[in-house]
């Protein structure tokens, strides 16, 4: 079975106010080919409150993530991490 990219959205107070719910929505609306290659979940506060909204993708942190650029970011990461997943 193909391994998936683990994408965690920070559910802390600041990230929530800075748009974590928009990130979740953008993740759920990924085009089907990309959507089926990621596993989405929330995680507890990542402790990077000044740089929200934060994402953790396969263990790496990403700050001030723009929902519109999310498909681009994930496509690039999937290309880069392809074999390491």
């Amino acid at each position: 079975m193909e391994k998936k990219l683990v994408v965690e959205v920070c559910a802390g107070t600041t990230c929530h106010l800075m748009g974590a719910s928009d990130l979740l929505l953008a993740l759920k609306r990924l085009e089907p080919g990309l959507r089926e290659r990621v596993r989405i979940s929330f995680c507890a506060c990542l402790g990077e409150c000044s740089h929200g909204p934060n994402l953790r993708v396969s263990g790496n942190l990403y700050h001030r993530v723009d929902p519109e650029l999310l498909p681009l970011l994930l496509t690039r990461l999937l290309d880069e991490l392809g074999d390491e997943l």
Partner: peptide
Amino acid sequence: ELTVEPEYADPAIPPTA
């Protein structure tokens, strides 16, 4: 383990765990 619920019950309030 702490597991955060994967859905919003209300988008104005962060999810529970």
